[in-house]
Design a binder for these strands. Structure first.
Lengths: 114, 114
DNA sequence: CGTAAATACCTCGTATAATGATGTAGATCA
DNA sequence: TGATCTACATCATTATACGAGGTATTTACG
């Protein structure tokens, strides 16, 4: 139940990280996240597309339609400079959060409360 | 905005980790998390008390009232055996999630999508 | 040829969970 | 006296991912 809650707040950062590598469309981003995480992470369309819209609204990514000779049309997103900076900040914050949580989970008793 | 979202799903695990050390009351747990995380993490009452109720409902922790000679009454929670096992499982899942996210954030391009 | 599956887009209602606001009350201290 | 800290509690709000539903094209299978 709380399994998926752990991912909250991370999908945008993950998308930015994928787009850092190369421009890609929504469906492809979802596949890329699965592939890179060795299938441990998986986002549905209901999560990916709203997240992409939000990122574009914030000016972190931009998109253009591509109509390949074969296959359906794709909306290809690319990372903007502003998005690159934001990605670095979010990576840093994520790292700090993990460290903080590990401090608590690790458990070192020192001072007494009250 | 998405800052606090990153903590979702973790408060219960953090509480269990605190109680693994020693029985403690809600207010003290909040202080202990702050202290252990070097003030990086901080949960308000509105988060702590509902989380404690949920953990007790699930049979992971138990409580009893203490009325010290000085100061207001406290509801002291202690970790049950079932809670100890659950803590280990959640620590493991957290570790796996962090590793998975790091795989994506780290970024290693190999195969091409589509 | 028909149809299932995969690719590819999109929206909306629902569920979950942390927060902030609000409230009570005793203890301490200036 | 009143501010601050301890200590409990509830509730409406907000944020976010998900599932379900829908459209359309292409490819593969029988």
């Amino acid at each position: 139940m709380q399994e998926r809650e752990l991912l909250k707040g991370n999908i945008q950062t993950l998308i930015l990280a994928i787009l850092e590598e190369e421009p890609l469309h929504g469906y492809g981003i979802a596949r890329a996240i699965e592939r890179r995480s060795k299938a441990a992470l998986s986002f549905r369309e209901g999560s990916i597309y709203p997240a992409l819209k939000a990122l574009e609204r914030e000016g972190l990514i931009a998109s253009n339609w591509e109509t390949p000779a074969i296959g359906p049309a794709r909306k290809v997103y690319r990372l903007l400079r502003k998005g690159g900076g934001e990605l670095e900040r979010r990576k840093l914050r994520w790292r700090e959060l993990v460290d903080s949580i590990d401090l608590v989970l690790g458990g070192n008793p020192d001072v007494q409360p009250t």
